[in-house]
């Protein structure tokens, strides 16, 4: 469904989104960006040997997942800027949730600002960011 700028209000929340961060999905991403052999992303055992709780989702995959969430909410929109802070690792095969909320609307540019977070099972924010999106 095409989303119209005039129907969006400050404070609107994007539908919460559960991304696929299974080991097979992360391996596919890692292959796609040329880090398929980096064990901390693709191998739980190797990641644990490096002191991590398990394999971790590459930061740029989290960023791409947030972009996909925005596209699902407003198909056809144009993301002008997406800024992500990789605050703490997200463990592969865990249950992460992506959230977004409209924090600014700019009628002259038909654009909105969105606060974005990815939280883990404990509700801790692991990745946060903002996006500027032309609707």
């Amino acid at each position: 469904m095409q989303r119209r700028f005039q129907d969006i209000e400050l404070g609107d929340e994007l539908p919460e989104y559960a991304p696929d961060i299974s080991l097979s999905a992360v391996r596919s991403f890692a292959e796609a960006v040329g880090v398929g052999r980096v064990g901390r992303f693709t191998d739980h055992e190797q990641a644990r040997r490096e002191g991590l709780p398990g394999a971790i989702v590459p930061g740029i995959m989290s960023q791409g997942i947030l972009a996909a969430m925005i596209h699902k909410w407003a198909p056809g929109c144009q993301i002008r800027k997406l800024d992500t802070v990789f605050r703490a690792p997200i463990v592969v095969d865990s249950q992460a949730r992506c959230r977004g909320v409209i924090t600014e609307t700019e009628p002259d540019a038909s654009s909105v600002d969105i606060d974005l977070t990815i939280v883990n099972e404990a509700g801790e924010t692991r990745v946060l960011g903002t996006a500027t999106v032309r609707i």
């Binding site: 404070g11 802070v85 600014e104 600002d113 606060d115 960011g129």
Partner: peptide
């Protein structure tokens, strides 16, 4: 360096919410 909020947006958010 790690702040992403405009002060005007804080103000509007406080009222809206």
């Amino acid at each position: 360096d790690d702040g992403r909020a405009k002060v005007s947006s804080y103000c509007r958010w406080i009222h809206k919410r």
